[in-house]
Amino acid sequence: MKKSKILLGLALTGVLAITLIAADHIDAPAVQGGKSDITDLYAFQGSNTNNMVFVANVQGLLTPTASASASFDENVMVEFNIDNNGDNVEDLVIQAIPRNGVMFFFGPVAPGTAGTTSMVKTEKPLGSISITPYGSEPIITTNNGAKMFAGLRDDPFFFDFGQYSAIIAGTATSFNNPGSDTFAGSNVMSIVVELPKSLLGGTGTLNTWVETKKK
């Protein structure tokens, strides 16, 4: 595991609109600027309230020039971890692995082992999707009740890093409204999977986090 995010307390009850957001751009020295660097995890209820959506973004701050040649690393698996019984240990994983221009998804399935070492769970294929080429309309596929996407997207996270730095330095006391988006014009490589809540187990709260794992 090169880098992980742990985010706790994602409720799934009723028709409550749920959004969980985290961002973490290029601040882990071991993966900074690499293809396993996680920038964002999003988890939220789908427009179909019976579904959950999981989004993992990697390779932050891609310029338009860098975006044209950006690709997923075939030696890096992106793994969504789901704890459905509150013990902060993954009960289910959804794995995304790129090969030859296609993103293959496996799960949700119990991991072979919990923690930082994983085995690809090929016995539980969820589906696959052609990775959307640069400058193309998004390719989305539906299989086994799940929707999937993989490819380049505009960085969705808004943050005024300049004003943040000024606040930390003591030369400003608050953010501006709306402020300046540091990430405007930059892109990320994004993996999206939407699937029925019934596949995730549990009836109350889910804890979810995402990891990138190198072969």
Rank of each mutant, 00 (worst) to 15 (best):
N57C: 10
D160N: 09
G112A: 06
M1Y: 11
G33Q: 01
Q32R: 14
N100I: 13
S47A: 15
F44P: 11
M1F: 10
F183I: 03
L152S: 03
S47W: 15
A23K: 08
A30I: 00
P29Y: 14
Q163F: 00
N187P: 09
T65G: 06
N100F: 04
K215V: 11
A114N: 15
E194D: 08
G151V: 13
E74D: 15
T203V: 07
A110D: 00
Q163T: 03
F72P: 04
S71K: 01
L16Q: 14
N187T: 05
S190C: 05
L195P: 02
I167N: 09
I18L: 11
A17L: 15
T142S: 12
H25M: 11
L8T: 02
F80L: 09
A30M: 00
T182C: 00
W209Y: 07
A172F: 00
D37Y: 00
E74H: 05
L12R: 14
S71F: 03
G46T: 15
V188I: 07
Y164W: 04
A30G: 05
A68R: 12
G86I: 10
T203G: 14
D181Q: 07
D83P: 07
Y164H: 10
T122Y: 10
F149P: 00
F106Y: 13
F159A: 03
I167F: 11
N85C: 09
T65V: 08
K121A: 10
S136M: 13
S69Y: 00
E90G: 15
V78R: 03
N57S: 11
P64C: 09
S180T: 00
V193K: 01
G179E: 01
T173E: 08
G202H: 12
F44C: 13
P125D: 10
Q59D: 01
D154G: 08
V102L: 05
N100W: 09
I168D: 10
M52R: 01
G204H: 03
H25D: 06
L41T: 08
K2L: 15
T171N: 11
L12T: 13
S198N: 09
K5I: 06
V15H: 05
T203E: 15
F161K: 02
A70C: 11
Y134I: 07
L199M: 07
G9T: 09
G185C: 03
D83Y: 08
K147L: 10
V78Y: 02
A43K: 06
N177C: 08
T208G: 04
K2D: 14
L12G: 13
P108Q: 08
G162Y: 02
A43L: 06
F159Q: 04
S69L: 01
V192A: 06
V31H: 07
D91F: 00
N187M: 07
Q59G: 01
F72S: 01
F157S: 04
F157Q: 13
Q163V: 01
A114D: 11
N48C: 07
G185S: 06
V193P: 01
V58P: 01
A28K: 12
A166T: 04
I139Y: 09
Q95L: 02
I140H: 03
